[in-house]
């Protein structure tokens, strides 16, 4: 069996912003998947808001995600068959919220895309797609936001703007921000940097 992460112990406070850094294959994405409850460790325990994720089954972890977690991905992961607005509405609809359309419209407005709400993802630029993804991530006011290389697919200038937006929203909503990145400049903007090497935390 291949060991990807070993002896990792860390705590992230409410409202904190944390960057996870490391070379390719260091285990960054795996750590993120574990923290978000997308995967389970072979041993060890993970808590979000004092809930033991490792004690839950897949649906239990899904329920935790629905309540507390938001995501921004490197490859955006917008649903190609939904418009920008519908993509943002999706988490609200899943949570069974009311006034979905209005809330989603406001979220799009906050990322500056109210004019693009009826466009499909393939009609949007990469930066715009990521902004939609950010609107979607924040629309539910999650306690924790996980971002996996959010600027990995964007050029430097666009990436910059997306990051500004991410931190602005983080400040405004008091969300805990956990992001995986290669970008030292981006990492510098976080309150804390966790460096991984060969599956182990080398500095935190």
């Amino acid at each position: 069996m291949l060991t990807i992460l070993q002896d990792v112990s860390l705590q992230i406070e409410q409202g904190e912003s944390v960057a996870i850094m490391g070379a390719s294959g260091a285990g960054k994405s795996t750590l993120l998947a574990l923290l978000a409850g997308l995967d389970v460790p072979t041993s060890g325990r993970i808590f979000i808001k004092n809930i033991d994720l490792t004690a839950l089954d897949e649906d239990g972890r899904a329920a935790v995600r629905a309540q507390y977690v938001g995501f921004v991905f490197q490859s955006f992961h917008l649903v190609p068959s939904l418009t920008a607005l519908e993509n943002v509405m999706l988490p609200l609809e899943l949570a069974g919220k009311t006034d979905v359309r209005q809330t989603a419209r406001q979220a799009l407005e906050r990322v500056g895309l109210s004019l693009r709400s009826q466009h499909y993802p393939n009609q949007l630029s990469g930066g715009e797609q990521q902004r939609v993804a950010i609107a979607r991530a924040f629309v539910n006011q999650p306690a924790v936001l996980f971002a996996d290389e959010p600027t990995g697919n964007l050029d430097a200038a666009t990436g910059e703007r997306v990051i500004d937006l991410l931190f602005e929203m983080n400040m405004a909503t008091g969300t805990t921000l956990v992001l995986v990145t290669h970008d030292a400049k981006l990492a510098q903007r976080c309150q804390r940097i966790i460096k991984l090497d060969m599956g182990q935390v080398v500095s935190a």
Partner: peptide, 16 residues
Amino acid sequence: LNTVALLKSMGASQRL
């Protein structure tokens, strides 16, 4: 596949 993974990451249960 991707949409379902996304829905799940947003907290949709298997049954849903």
